[in-house]
Design a protein around this nucleic acid. Sequence first.
RNA 1: GCUGCUGUAGCUCAGUGGUAGAGCACCUCCUUGGUAAGGAGGAGGUCACGGGUUCAAGUCCCGUCAGCAGCUCCA
Length: 586
Amino acid sequence: MSLPFEPQSGPAPLAALRHSVSHVMADAVLRLFPEGKVAIGPPIEHGFYYDFELPRPLTEEDLPRIEAEMRRILAEAGEFRRLTLSRAEAEERLRAAGQPYKLELLADIPEGEEISFYEHGTWGDLCEGPHVARADQIPADGFRLLSVAGAYWRGDASQPMLQRIYGTAWWSKKDLKKYLAYLEEVQARDHRRLGRELDLFSLHPEFGAGLVFWHPKLAHVRRRLEEWWWRLHEERGYWPVYTPHVAGEPVFERSGHLQNYADMIWAPMDVDGRPHRVKPMNCPGHVTIFNSRRHSYRDLPLRFAELGTVYRYEPSGTLHGMLRVRGFTQDDAHIFCTPAQLEDEIVGVLDLVDVILRTFGYEYTAYLATRPEKSLGDDAIWEHAMAALRAAADRRGLDLADDPGGGVFYGPKIDFKIRDALGREWQGPTVQVDFNLPERFDIQYNDADNTLKRPVMVHRAIFGSMERFVGGLIEHFAGWFPVWLHPCPVAVLPITEEQEEAAAAVLERVRAAGFPAVLRSGGPLRRRVREAEVEKIPYMVVLGAREVDEGRLNLRVHGVKEQRSLTVDEFLGFLREKRDRRDLDY
RNA sequence: GCUGCUGUAGCUCAGUGGUAGAGCACCUCCUUGGUAAGGAGGAGGUCACGGGUUCAAGUCCCGUCAGCAGCUCCA
């Protein structure tokens, strides 16, 4: 993740600063809670955390107190000293300090490795370092404690839950302020907040947690995306299919989903005495269509596409707005091809991924996820698939980072990570080769030599889920959708009642050209301009007596200082161009 | 799912165990306005839900549901 500013450098790497601040924080927390136990406290991307076991839960109100204590410590701490101890000495010291978690960490240090402590003032901690040299190098106004949350000891859900304090630290107050401003920007773009403010979507517990209601404006965005998506797929030889949302349980036993992911599938419902399930995936449906007749090698590759809505029973604590939900629509497709066609098919997918991601201004990185420990299929077939993925990426000039062992049990894949306007990374498209499902459903084609062969299957999704992708777009664009997606790019504002008729005529023409628009009359213009701006409407057409006389309109564009005078035709031409080129700016 | 926090008007939030509040949004009227908040009035509440303590609960206790910050998980 990259930040929109270049942080100042200091006498040590930022990570050393943050690590040191985390030590000072642990010192401060133990001064306030002498019976507390400390666990781990590493530097992280833009700050640090430290995990504690404390006699009572911390609240946000404790953070300023801890910060104050930290500043007291900094004033008197002096040097950060590194000392190496023998294992016995270290054990003795941690036992005396009553620090069971540290003793566990010590026991994990392999024999023969150096055991080091870092001390400042009266505090010492088992630690590899590195740290700053002296406490006075830490700017007292360059750090801030941010939040408290639970975290399992060693990240293991069966271990005790500790309390984690997150903080951030920089070499200057200026950088800290910039970072806090960045966090505020992240908050201001939060799709849940914009979803409410702009009336985009809602969630309703009485319908169920994690089920999204798309309000008209966001539904418009989605429809535009879907229309474009279908056009791109039809141009590339995909065929639309529709498959049922519910299936008898044996379908998911055969696919293996029930055995492997029972927890993630919604509870069964009884239909005519037989258990049925709501589908967690679209692939069994697509395979079933493939299998409904005998295929020739001449049919391949066969590409089935569906905006398929699936339901997965995600744990309650993981639900998050539109980004992590229990019902969502995948932009799913399955390609059935011969092993020899695999590489070309993957090239086609990589090309489509690039076309789609570039349109939104997303940068992306691709990862090749290789064979995991637990997996199916023999080595030769894995090798062939990985070679195809690599060769395809190579032909596209796409660099593949490695994700060793990150593949799914049924085959290797390429995953994309996308970077949004704030430099944050999101889970992006995925292309997966599958050897398992063709096997399980015994799918075949009749080859040129009149023998039955097993096709290879490629799963791929580009948006991933409409919910997650559109939620991400809300944040990426901060609610300012580009013209081609915008649910209402134009507000027509007559200055007085005198211009209402002319305004209505302009409104009609804008709408007829395919752009949603609203007419807002009554009350001061200032107010209506503000309201349209708050609603994130990029184009305001202002009509006063002057404009009506001249047969022109006055155009106010978001983010542009100068107003423009245009005819309606010029304005519509301008809008069409923005739309058809899918421009990202206004 | 786990830990902690939170749940009061559509939104953001005040509210000592004793008659339910503000700003914004909404509605009505006035204002006819030149590029980010004109004025006045009005309506709006099962204080998340279910139990309990108490003469009395928005307020204290327990449970449920949901949301939030993380953790674990995400075929």
